[in-house]
């Protein structure tokens, strides 16, 4: 009997492990396949480059994971990145031309984060107070934000000041690890602890799983939802700082274009359910790295960039198929 119990527990544990971390196994299989298909792929420089490039979408995806677990979605992220990024670049130009190059950088960054978090707050308030579907609200807010950037930049590109203190944020490395990736991992670790260990994290799952039951348990459903939208807004602001610092420029028409879809893709590939109530940040990290690898391999293998959508679509379908057994 005891033996049987132990065996059952083993089966349960291993099936649970596979259920939760199948994506990690798939990740290593992808690494292996890529290494065989293009040996250059495995060079450290290339790998670090992938991490640097994919971290911007990755940071948005980390925030997006919270929104999706709570049963929402944010389609305004790309435009939010452009809006808050434009403010950042414009202010950076102003303060650096004014004198002391290092210190005042903090002001544009704070403004950038405030704007992006503010847009998230607006999304959350409209969704909860007007009781409108998140899909529509964030789509509309995104369109408005994009239009504001276009007007602000006159539809063109605004250049910032290419001073090293600024450009190093996105282009620098610490112990040869790209700073954007360090930022992404730091954020992910902090938010992972919050998601899995804090009351707030548990409520996010509860709200996504059954809003009514959450409300009857005394959880302030609206507040939880608004915070998740503010969180993805904040993460998008962080991503904006990095994106802007890499180019020291903002392009009204293309900055952050389609980043929301890339981020949602990373979250889904990472195994978070679009129905809400289930998900994990570890998956999202693996998810955005896989997306980075796919982008990189397209170049390595000389595949037309026009086909990248086809490949990414296939990746989404494959990932969802793989995880279908979870439900």
């Amino acid at each position: 009997m005891e033996e049987l119990k132990r065996r059952n527990r083993f089966i349960e544990l291993s099936s649970k492990l596979w259920k939760n971390y199948s994506i990690v196994v798939v990740f290593f299989v992808i690494l292996l396949i890529c290494g065989i298909a293009a040996p250059r792929f495995l060079r450290p420089n290339n790998l670090l480059n992938i991490l640097r490039n994919t971290s911007i979408v990755g940071i948005i995806a980390i925030g997006m994971t919270f929104v999706i677990i709570a049963g929402g979605i944010d389609l305004s992220s790309g435009a939010t990145l452009a809006t808050s990024g434009a403010a950042l670049i414009a202010l950076q130009k102003l303060v650096t031309e004014a004198g002391d190059p290092a210190m005042p950088l903090i002001i544009p960054i704070v403004v950038c984060l405030t704007i992006s978090t503010g847009i998230g707050f607006a999304n959350g308030i409209i969704i909860t107070k007007a009781k409108l579907p998140p899909f529509i609200v964030t789509l509309a807010v995104g369109i408005i934000a994009r239009s504001v950037v276009m007007y602000f930049c006159r539809g063109a590109t605004i250049m910032g000041n290419r001073i090293p203190t600024f450009t190093n944020i996105g282009n620098g490395s610490v112990f040869s690890i790209p700073i954007p990736f360090i930022v992404a991992i730091l954020l992910a670790v902090i938010l992972h602890v919050i998601l899995t260990r804090s009351k707030f994290g548990t409520y996010v799952f509860a709200v996504g799983g059954n809003e009514n039951a959450a409300r009857y348990s005394g959880i302030k459903v609206d507040r939880i939802k608004i915070i998740t939208y503010m969180l993805v807004g904040f993460c998008t602001g962080v991503a904006a700082v990095i994106e802007m610092s890499r180019m020291a420029a903002v392009a009204a028409t293309s900055s952050g274009m389609q980043y929301e879809f890339e981020a949602i893709t990373a979250v889904i590939v990472g195994g978070t359910s679009l129905n809400g109530g289930k998900g994990r940040l570890v998956g999202t990290i693996v998810g955005f790295i896989i997306l980075g690898i796919v982008n990189n391999m397209m170049i390595m293998l000389n595949i037309s960039p026009y086909l990248s959508g086809a490949v990414k679509g296939a990746v989404i379908l494959f990932a969802v198929l793989l995880q279908r057994r979870d439900r």
């Binding site: 260990r197 804090s198 059954n210 009857y216 289930k278």
Partner: peptide, 26 residues
């Protein structure tokens, strides 16, 4: 209105307890 079916017994039975006790972490 009673349960969050996709979450486990631990979470479902402690929501109100967490709401009533102070602190950020469970």
């Amino acid at each position: 209105t009673g349960l969050v079916l996709c979450r486990d017994i631990t979470e479902n039975s402690n929501y109100v307890f967490w709401r009533k006790t102070p602190g950020f972490f469970r």
